[in-house]
């Protein structure tokens, strides 16, 4: 049996969603504006989009680019962040570079990247990669810095080389922090994915959204927003499951809110 408190906790997001949709529905009914469909109209359009083969291919292409950008970013950023956290020289070299890149909206770099690499997949993947990298590097760096020195000494006494210590002590010890960065990175991947498709209009979920806007198909616009939002929530939920499994051993942490930036 599930306790009332636990039930309330689990049901809360559902009620929040229903509440939001209800407010939307009422507002749309009152405003009666052509460019503001009701919630029910928007939701009715979703099966049309997901039933359309071309739209589905577009959305899957988006997800594929996102997965590649996210994956490559993790492969590069985690080792880099860990090295920066354990070596002052590496940190001193990369920190200024990252400080410069950090405040630049990655989408603002797109025009330049498009000039070099065109409007294809590579450009979009690169932008996603850039968007994901920074939080992952930052959290890996912080995680590696915080690893207790005595833990590394214990490993050294057992005969672990410095590379072994990095892979077998620093990496697992910093994993909770790294995964916090990855979770932020995942949301950023979704955001940069959509943004990149808005700028380099060719294919993808973002393209469907903006084509619909151009053609005045407002039901589709709102439906796509719901679809993209659901994708974000779904991916985040899956990631959270994986994260919780990987760091079961860790001290309990407070669930942190999604950080959009």
């Amino acid at each position: 049996m599930i306790s009332p408190a636990a039930f309330a906790r689990r049901a809360a997001p559902v009620f929040a969603c229903i509440g939001l949709l209800a407010v939307w529905q009422i507002a749309a009914l009152i405003l009666k504006n052509d460019s503001f469909p009701t919630a029910i109209e928007a939701i009715r359009t979703i099966p049309d989009i997901l039933g359309d083969k071309e739209a589905l291919i577009n959305i899957l292409a988006s997800l594929r680019r996102m997965a590649i950008g996210f994956g490559v970013a993790l492969l590069v950023s985690i080792p880099l962040g860990l090295l920066m956290g354990r070596s002052r020289a590496v940190a001193a070299f990369f920190n200024p570079l990252l400080m410069i890149i950090y405040p630049v909206p990655k989408a603002a770099l797109m025009p330049i990247i498009m000039l070099w690499l065109g409007v294809g997949d590579v450009t979009k993947i690169l932008v996603i990669f850039l968007g994901v990298s920074l939080p992952v590097i930052y959290h890996s760096f912080e995680g590696a810095k915080a690893v207790e020195e005595k833990m590394l000494w214990s490993g050294a006494a057992m005969g672990l080389s410095s590379l072994q210590r990095l892979v077998r002590i620093v990496l697992p010890a910093a994993l909770p922090e790294i995964l916090t960065g990855c979770r932020t990175g995942l949301v950023l991947a979704l955001i940069t994915m959509i943004t990149s498709e808005m700028i380099a209009r060719q294919s993808g979920a973002g393209n469907i959204l903006f084509n619909a806007l151009d053609m005045g198909q407002y039901d589709t616009v709102y439906a796509m927003i719901i679809v993209i939002g659901a994708m974000g929530i779904g991916l985040d939920a899956i990631f959270e499951r994986v994260r919780a499994m990987l760091v079961r051993w860790s001290e309990p942490q407070f669930d942190m809110p999604l950080s959009f930036s």
Partner: peptide, 12 residues
């Protein structure tokens, strides 16, 4: 072989 006040166990 060291034994530290902080234990320094591998938590994972």
């Amino acid at each position: 072989g060291p034994v530290f006040q902080e234990f320094a166990l591998f938590p994972w």
